[in-house]
Design a protein around this nucleic acid. Structure first.
Lengths: 233, 233
DNA sequence: AATTGTGAATTCCTTCACAGCC
DNA sequence: GGCTGTGAAGGAATTCACAATT
């Protein structure tokens, strides 16, 4: 167990391992080797061992990793044992889809509020039974309900402003779907999902056949950014 | 201008630069320096110059880059001067949202078909005026309409099978929203958007305050994968 | 004077290879 | 024998720093 900083590439892979372990647990598999796990994702087994070694010695030499044990460790590391409250701001197509999406781990994330500034939408109840409120009440609700994560599904033009507002209200983690670069304050983490970049990346590939090296499906997007610790640059 | 392979990190940044140049063009700015561009994204100016240098010498020393000129070059490099046909498979919450999403560059991408295997959905017309068809007709439509990009918004369990089918029908680029690792055949590129990983990454950050180094908003997900050139490992 | 384009230096990430343990 | 954990090697991406150019 080290105290070095852990790269986000590593923690993202932990999520992938966890998903796989969940399936293995369901199927009743007791142990798995780093090699067997690596085969599932075209990864190198040493990488998996290194990723895990940042957090402890979870394996047993000659045996591999106990599925249930490693699963619990990863849940802990990723902070998935607590249920985190989430609000969605912007209930357009995407925001509504996310509000009704069942794919999130329901044990770890709970959508407790939906906010939009379109009067026509306020009061509408979504399938999961949450009512859309005016953004007027956003800050208040975040403070009251101890919301930890905000999903931004607003137009690009509004994203910066809402980020500012929810930061002010104490939110430290934002999942941003607006196609815009956001500069969070120190201590705040923004993760952007940019569909335009994804599509254009496919377009580049189609336009430049063969140019492509080994594709890096899970390692995406532009370089270093200002970030959580504020140490931009 | 070199002939080395260009990393996807580079091409993703080109998308970001292009978006910025579009805004600059609208605002009437004539030239921009790599430094000024870099400031917008907390990037290093040398990185921008290097990224561009893979494709040519677009700048003018002492001046910078002509906005319109560079914009056109980037559009060409990214293959955005042709309109590419897209179909969406899986019209659940997310698929429907994407079908109605106006955010894609309408000049470069056109949604020409929607496919689902739920009989209740077949025949439904979306807001953008495209009717949902049975997946029975998927391969046929791809071949007939020369579809180049498939957006996969099906459940994880079905993703592999649909990928196989559309690959067989000639599609070489897939944007995958199913939370599952896909192994495309050589020559096929899959780009996965995994909301679970994104959320869990935020959860990790919340659970490990301070552990976080400079956040890397645009550089996401797990390491190397089998890919377009088939040179997995 | 300003800014590009790029070799060299640096930093970061991945893979190798093997000692150590079960 | 099989598999982990890890130091060392290798490779990739970023940043520095400066010569070249307008």
């Amino acid at each position: 167990m080290k105290t070095e900083k852990v790269s986000e590439l590593t923690t993202n892979r932990l999520s992938v391992y966890l998903r796989c372990l969940n399936e293995l647990a369901v199927s009743g598999t007791e142990t798995i080797s780093s090699q067997a796990l690596a085969d599932q994702f075209n990864l190198n087994s040493a990488q998996i061992r290194k990723d895990l070694a940042y957090f402890g010695e979870f394996g047993v030499r000659g045996v591999g990793y106990y599925v249930e044990d490693l699963r619990r460790h990863l849940m802990n590391i990723l902070g998935l044992t607590e249920k985190r409250k989430v609000v969605i701001v912007g209930l357009g197509n995407l925001g509504l889809a996310l509000a009704n999406y069942q794919g999130f781990n329901q044990d770890s994330f709970e959508v407790v509020g939906l906010f939009d500034d379109d009067p026509a939408k306020i009061g509408v109840k979504t399938r999961i039974g949450v009512t859309i409120q005016s953004t007027k009440h956003l800050s208040e609700a975040i403070r009251r309900d101890k919301v930890e994560i905000v999903i931004l599904a607003v137009p690009a033009i509004a994203a910066e402003r809402v980020l500012e507002e929810v930061t002010e209200a104490g939110v430290r983690a934002v999942l941003n779907f607006a196609p815009v670069h956001l500069n969070p304050r120190p201590g705040v983490k923004v993760k952007t999902v940019d569909l335009t970049i994804s599509l254009e990346s496919l377009s580049y590939f189609l336009a430049n056949p063969g140019t492509d090296a080994v594709s890096v499906d899970y390692r995406d997007f532009l370089g270093r950014e200002a970030g959580a610790n504020g140490a931009a640059r």
